[in-house]
Structure formats: structure tokens, C-alpha cells
Design a protein around this nucleic acid. Structure first.
Length: 428
DNA sequence: TCTGGGGTCCTAGGACCC
DNA sequence: TCTGGGGTCCTAGGACCC
């Protein structure tokens, strides 16, 4: 038996906790570079702002009514950790699924509904984050329960009012569950994206109930094992287990769109170095080493009248490492002849592949299997953790206050919970 | 003027092995 | 005349998630 708890309009809700003036107003949180909407308050949804919509494409009269914030991931990450601490305290087995969602194992619990209601209120009371809880015999049904709980808050009448905020689908009669499944378009299910949703509808499968009751071998044959699992989970047959221990990452990527188009290769080289430094920090934080490096750059694909170039290159390292300097050295060599003159680049990224635990790396007969100075790197990480990111670093990043490639963040809120520097400026 | 940043898994097909 | 039958590994592409 699973529960899924998730924060409503999570990023928008985080902003509202510390900026009460945003409550009750249509609020939009923008992606990096203040490009498109990545979170919307209910009021902003009601005005018709779409998920992922470019903010400059929102009608001017709507735009005027919106409160807007630049994405503040430091704040959201910290609020997420607070919510998670409450969940871990309340339930023995928790799987953090995303920044705003966790699965809980409720197997054997007697009064699930009371537990879920209490948790629902406690998270809101203790963190300020409104949330919903879905419960079901499988993860897919718990996810669906969560969708039902949220929908019946936002659009009263879409589902029975008793399922508002907290929805235990496992407590419903088969008839009542069938009604919920009938009211749910197939595309709203976890694991059914726009492509499959369209293909399913062509086959006359438009609702969750129709998918559940469709021919098993038809789904398996036409869509593969992934959707087949979703189908089985819909009938209460668990195919996905709770994963308390996060599996090691297979790759780590750091990429950014630039605040403006950049032709200057030195500037882009500094961007690559900055991304590599960040990627290596993430790598070490997970106790991993990397065996290969990839880089890419893109010109502005929204300006097709401009000359386009999207080079990409990967290199295997002779020995695995988590030492930023080894990665930067390789990166420098990879960049020879990589960018072309006369192109204006808009985005670049670095990714680390072939990740592994240092003790699992196949050893070389004549040389150590990894390379680099662990003590130096952990000292740098410790200083940056304590005094703030970028307190110590490496020259290849350019070390600039405002790099040419830097992001636009015109409406960034304060780091209310993670920066002492911001505290005196916070009025709450 | 202005358009995000991460991830995972599965499948099919080709190269290659014995 | 007739030309096997398994395997694995790798990669690219496509789907999904938040």
C-alpha cells in the first residue's frame, strides 16, 4: 500500500511562504533566464498561463496581472528537505521521488485516512507548503489518487468531494473506483505521455478505466513492457517497488542557456569550466568518479534565420577521477576546434558519464585505477559549503562577477533559508 | 527583446563472438 | 542441391518523468 504526497504548485508555494504579499495573487515562477513558466499558482492557472509557456507569449493584459519570480532553486531545495524531514519522522519507509513528491509505504497501517489527513495538515502547518495525498495499492494508483485529491480541490465536482485533499483509492468500492477511472483521461496517468496518449485514443482507449480493461497482449505488443506495467498497476497488481535507497547516478549534466547570444570563444570556454566545476562538485557529493566527459554547444534554435551550429564531443578519460583539475585539463583539450567563428551560441553544457564508485573501478594492472587529489578537493568543497559556493575555485572559470554568458534573473527572491547575507533584507 | 534543466528506461539493429 | 543457431555488447532514438 502506497501513499504519494506532493506540494501544490511547489515553487510558487515556496515563494509565498516568505512573501505573504504573493498569497492570493496570480503568481508565476520562471525558468532560468526568466524564459518560461515552470510553476503557477492556482490564480495564474485560472488566467490561462500554461506550464512551460514562454512568458513573452502571455497576452499583455494577463501579463500585467501576474506577479513573477525568477527560479530560486536554493530556496526550493531547502523547503523540500524540510518537508522530507517531516515525512521521514512520520513514516518508516519513504522514497523521495522528486523535489516536491515522495512515496510512503503504508503497508499494514490500520487507519490510513486519519494518518494521511494528519500528515497533510502537519506538512502545511510546519512548512507552509499546501499539499495533497493520494493512496493506492500500487504506486500508479497512489499517483492517481494524488491527482484526484488535487483536482477535486481545484475543480470541485470533477471527482467526489470526499476525495478532496486526501484520496484513498484503496478504500473505494470497485464501483466507485471504476467511476474515478472513467473520469480520468488516460493521458493524466503516471507513465502515459502525450505520444502514447494519442496512440491509445486512436485505439479507442481514452480513459484510465479503458486502459485498465484493455487486452493485455495488445498493450504489451503495441507499447512494450513499460505501459504494460502501468496497466497492471492500474488493476492493483504492484510492479514497482518503493525505492528507499537512491541508485547511483549514471550521468551528471550541467547546462545553461546564456542570458544573451555569445560569439566570444573565451567567454564560452569560461562557461564550460564553470559547468565542469559544478558537475564535479555534484559528482563528489555523491561519492562518485567519472570515466568520460561530454560537451555540447548550441546556437539559438529559435532564430533559424541565424547560422546554426550544434557541436558535440565526448572523450574517455584514461583513468576515472573526481578531481576538477583533471576534468578541466581534458576539457581544455576537447575544446580545440570545437566552436566556429561567426556563430552566436546560446546554450552550452558539460556532462559526466561512465560514473562509478572508486572502489568498483576495474583496476589497471600497472597503475592506480583513479587519479586526482581527493584531500584537496574535499578541502575546497568544505570551504565552499561553509562560506558559500564560489568562495574558492579555479581560474579557468574566469572568476567574473557578471559573465557575458550569465543568466537573466530579474525577479529573484531572497535566499530566505540558506543565506545569512540575505536575512537582514527579509521582512518576515 | 524574449523560449529551462535536469534525469531514466526500453527497443531495435548492427557488430561481433563461438 | 544444400549455407546454423545461438549469444553479448554497443549505440541511437524514442518514450517517459519532474
Amino acid at each position: 500500500m502506497f501513499a504519494l504526497i506532493d506540494g501544490n504548485n511547489f515553487y510558487a508555494s515556496c515563494e509565498r511562504v516568505f512573501q505573504p504579499e504573493l498569497r492570493g495573487r496570480p503568481l508565476v515562477v520562471l525558468s532560468n533566464n526568466d524564459g518560461c513558466a515552470i510553476a503557477r499558482s492556482d490564480e495564474a492557472k485560472a488566467l490561462g498561463v500554461k506550464m512551460g509557456q514562454a512568458i513573452h507569449q502571455v497576452a499583455p493584459d494577463v501579463r500585467k496581472q501576474l506577479a513573477v519570480r525568477s527560479a530560486n532553486f536554493a530556496l526550493y531545495g531547502d523547503m523540500s528537505a524540510r518537508v522530507l524531514a517531516i515525512l521521514r519522522d512520520a513514516a518508516p519507509r519513504v522514497e523521495p521521488y522528486s523535489i516536491d513528491e515522495s512515496f510512503l509505504d503504508l503497508t499494514g497501517m490500520r487507519d490510513r485516512e486519519a494518518f494521511a489527513r494528519e500528515l497533510h495538515e502537519r506538512v502545511h502547518r510546519w512548512t507552509g507548503i499546501p499539499n495533497c495525498v493520494g493512496i493506492g495499492a500500487t504506486k500508479t494508483l497512489a499517483k492517481l489518487g494524488n491527482f484526484v485529491a488535487k483536482s477535486s480541490v481545484r475543480k470541485p465536482g470533477s471527482y467526489p468531494a470526499s476525495l478532496s485533499g486526501v484520496a484513498d483509492l484503496a478504500a473505494l468500492s470497485p464501483q466507485a473506483l471504476a467511476e474515478v477511472l472513467t473520469a480520468t483521461p488516460v493521458g493524466e496517468l503516471w507513465g502515459v505521455g502525450p505520444r502514447w496518449s494519442a496512440r491509445l485514443r486512436e485505439l479507442g482507449i481514452a480513459t484510465a478505466l479503458q486502459l485498465r480493461d484493455a487486452q493485455r497482449d495488445l498493450i504489451l505488443e503495441r507499447f512494450g513492457v513499460v505501459l504494460s506495467r502501468t496497466q497492471r498497476e492500474l488493476s492493483g497488481d504492484p510492479c514497482l517497488a518503493l525505492e528507499e535507497v537512491e541508485p547511483d547516478r549514471q550521468q551528471i549534466m550541467v547546462s545553461r542557456s546564456f542570458g544573451e547570444r555569445v560569439e566570444n570563444h573565451q567567454s564560452i570556454s569560461e562557461a564550460f569550466a564553470t559547468f565542469a566545476v559544478r558537475a564535479c562538485e555534484k559528482l563528489r557529493a555523491r561519492g562518485l568518479v567519472t570515466g568520460a566527459i561530454g560537451i555540447f554547444a548550441n546556437t539559438d534554435h529559435f532564430r533559424l534565420e541565424l547560422r546554426q551550429h550544434h557541436p558535440q564531443r565526448t572523450t574517455d578519460l584514461p583513468r576515472a577521477t573526481s578531481d576538477t583539475r583533471v576534468v578541466l585539463d581534458t576539457l581544455r583539450r576537447m575544446q580545440r576546434g570545437f566552436l566556429k567563428d561567426g556563430f552566436a551560441y546560446k546554450k552550452a553544457g558539460v556532462w559526466l558519464m561512465d560514473l562509478g564508485r572508486p572502489e568498483q573501478i576495474q583496476p589497471d594492472l600497472f597503475a592506480p585505477s583513479t587519479i586526482g587529489n581527493d584531500k584537496l578537493m574535499s578541502a575546497m568543497d568544505a570551504i565552499n559549503r561553509r562560506y558559500g559556493r564560489g568562495t574558492v575555485g579555479l581560474g579557468a572559470t574566469g572568476w567574473r562577477e557578471r559573465p557575458q554568458w550569465g543568466m537573466r534573473q530579474a525577479n529573484l527572491s531572497l535566499h530566505f533559508t540558506t543565506s545569512l547575507r540575505d536575512l537582514p533584507r527579509a521582512h518576515c
